[in-house]
Design a protein around this nucleic acid. Structure first.
Length: 604
RNA sequence: GGAGGCGUGGUGUAGUGGUUAACAUAUUGCCCUGUCAAGGCAAAGAUCGCGGGUUCGAGACCCGUCGCCUCCGCCA
């Protein structure tokens, strides 16, 4: 090794020791007769001092160094002189007096700062990702990611789980997203699908009797990217036999608490995690993955507002459309009439973008006796207002936002406004973390377009035992054994107890508009396997990228993935995706036919 | 597929139709023995993403296009 120690480990106790360090020049401070180098490696930064009078050759070599040059030094550790310690640095009490400085490799001037946290255009960061990853922020993130993964592996190993790899080249899996296809050279005209999750395979491992399985599985979904979504991602995949819903939830809850506390050094705001039903989550937060770091829960006032004199509310209530209120604490505060209208208009624009037709509001003055402002105030009697304030907990200076529409629209508007208000009010502190379980999902959503039921998770999800009869009478009311774990407004895990009974499994296919023939073609191996002694089983899957993103306090998933893709699914550094060689296509019996371009111009 | 934002020296930004395109920082050179976002002096560095158009005149206005980001659709 070219190093006896890492740059980050040197402490007072090393004083007097002769050491070798190697790393990158993080900063150089040339004082003339004395040169300071901040030498960086993955473990930290150490100050190296080169004194001209003591080591002229080393001083000369150090004078040639520039940022990001790779160097190897030999020297002696000593306590820094009185008054020159740097408390910002973990190695700040010591320095290495170098007598040999060897340049291992020079570097071009990097296109952006490695040694400063400034905003850099993501295009540039992606093009030079290997330099971006040199930055302490990215190194911290990837180290955290490693620790999370390592912790999880150990945690599950201690509890009798074994990790089993499942294939990447497989067959379409029933997750509902678009598949990535891989052509088979040996079987012209046929394709593998990359797994969207190892769902089927892990269930088959339960049939095989492994009982406790996990895998850090790479999964692929060919859908548009988002700040919290990539084409490929890593999923902690777990499946267990002979378990009930609570067994899986308890295991994950314990694991998440320990990871948060022991690896990320944070404490979940709620222990145990609150359990919210799907219905309650929608009614209060408008979302099945609510951010419960803050309250801001919507209040139903359909009965009350329906009796007001506001025509829209009266008619909506009559049609069974809900009327809900979101209270924005202190938001009306000291605003003037004009400012208030402007603020309300901005919120209305946002509400419209979420599907609302409008947004009614009421502002409470700062003092108790102040008049209630807002266009709909006059439609409510004094008594109605008093009750309204009581129910919503409204305080002087609050802004009340009213939503009324089709139920789904109202949910969407609540979710949008709630997230927006939380940001505006400073409730979204990334150093806080709050998990919440969402349970009792409906088994199916009605697909109006196709006139059929779509499974809300996937077709292997078991129905809650008490709701089993509903499958025959009223499938829309049947609740599944599904459980999702939300964290700071993101879904970080989701799973269910599975169907282990072939008769019930077969009942699912017609319900979701699939013929038995088609089901056998796609899932025949599953149905057949289910005839050979399937244990009751269930499991869960957790998006590791997303979890690490939250634990790292990062605003998007790319910050915790070494080589992520852009929103267009491109790798700017390598230039992927790219065209294939004709020879490759020939071997695969594939012909590329691009859609015609530029219809507008050819018309002219 | 759609909506919005952004694109100006290496990087981050300013730029109100007429400026020698400004500032900070980085870079290069010189000076400097206790700095740590070191400091001082000096220099170099931009076809303003690309292509059209409007105008006497465009970094700015218009149209198109490309790229990046956020969001909707999609995806749990």
């Amino acid at each position: 090794m070219l190093k006896t120690h890492t740059c980050g480990e040197l402490r007072l106790q090393h004083a007097g020791q002769r050491v070798e360090l190697a790393g990158w020049v993080y900063r150089r401070r040339d004082q003339g007769g004395i040169i300071f180098l901040d030498l960086r490696d993955r473990w930290g930064i150490a100050q190296v001092v080169i004194d001209e009078s003591a080591s002229p050759e080393a001083h000369d070599a150090a004078g040639q160094l520039r940022n990001e040059y790779v160097v190897h030094i030999k020297g002696t550790v000593r306590a820094r002189p009185e008054g020159t310690a740097n408390s910002e640095l973990s190695t700040g009490e010591v320095e290495v007096v170098a007598d040999e400085v060897e340049l291992l490799n020079p570097s071009k001037t990097p296109p952006f700062y490695i040694n400063q946290e400034t905003k850099i255009d993501e295009t540039v960061r992606m093009k030079y990702r290997y330099l971006d990853l040199r930055r302490p922020r990215m190194q911290d993130n990837l180290v955290l990611r490693h620790k999370v993964v390592k912790f999880i592996r150990d945690f599950l190993d201690e509890r009798g789980f074994i990790e089993i790899e499942t294939p990447i080249l497989f067959k379409t899996t029933p997750e509902g997203a678009r598949d990535f296809l891989v052509p088979s050279r040996m079987n012209p005209g046929t394709f593998y699908a990359l797994p969207q999750s190892p769902q089927q395979l892990k269930q088959l491992l339960m049939v095989a009797g492994y009982e406790k399985y996990f895998q850090l599985a790479r999964c692929f979904r060919d859908e548009d990217l988002r700040g919290d979504r990539q084409l490929e991602f890593t999923q902690l995949d777990i499946e267990m036999s002979f378990v009930r819903r609570e067994d899986v939830m308890d295991l994950i809850e314990e694991m998440m608490i320990q990871v948060t506390e022991q690896v990320a050094g944070m404490t979940p705001m709620f222990k145990p995690f609150p359990r919210i039903t799907y219905q309650e989550a929608l009614e209060k937060f408008g979302s099945d993955k609510p951010d419960v770091r803050y309250d801001l829960a919507a209040v139903d006032v359909t009965d009350l507002a329906g009796k007001s004199a506001f025509p829209v509310f009266v008619s909506n209530a009559g049609e069974g459309k809900p009327i809900k209120v979101l209270r924005a604490p202190g938001l009306a505060g000291s605003l003037s009439g004009t400012q208030l209208r402007k603020a309300a208009e901005e919120l209305e624009t946002l509400a419209r973008s979420a599907g609302a037709k409008g947004l009614a509001w009421m502002a409470l003055g700062e003092k108790e006796q102040d008049e209630v402002k807002g266009p709909i105030g006059k439609f409510f009697t004094i008594e109605q207002k008093v009750e309204l304030f009581e129910r919503t907990g409204a305080q002087p200076g609050d802004l009340l936002l009213f939503m009324s529409d089709q139920r789904e629209v109202v949910y969407n508007v609540i979710d949008t406004l709630r997230r927006h208000l939380a940001n505006q009010l400073g409730y979204t502190d990334p150093t806080k973390i709050a998990f919440a379980w969402v349970i009792d999902f409906p088994m199916f959503y009605w697909n109006e377009e196709e006139q059929r039921w779509d499974p809300s998770q996937h077709m292997f999800t078991a129905t809650l035992p008490e709701d089993l009869p509903l499958l025959d009478t009223d499938p829309g009311k049947a609740r599944g054994s599904q459980y999702d774990l939300s964290c700071n407004g993101y879904e970080v895990a989701g799973g269910s107890i599975r169907i282990h009974n072939r008769a019930i499994q077969e009942k699912m296919f017609p319900l979701i508009g699939q013929t038995m023939e088609r089901a056998r073609e796609q899932f025949g191996h599953m149905l057949e396997a289910f005839e050979y002694g399937v244990p009751p089983h269930g499991g869960i899957a957790s998006g590791i990228d997303r979890l690490v993103m939250i634990l790292a306090g990062e605003p998007n998933i790319r910050e915790v993935i070494a080589f992520p893709k852009t929103q267009q699914g491109a790798d700017i550094m390598a230039g992927a995706p790219s065209e294939a060689e004709p020879k490759q296509l020939d071997e695969l019996s594939i012909k590329v036919v691009l859609p015609p371009k530029d219809d507008k111009k050819s018309d002219v």
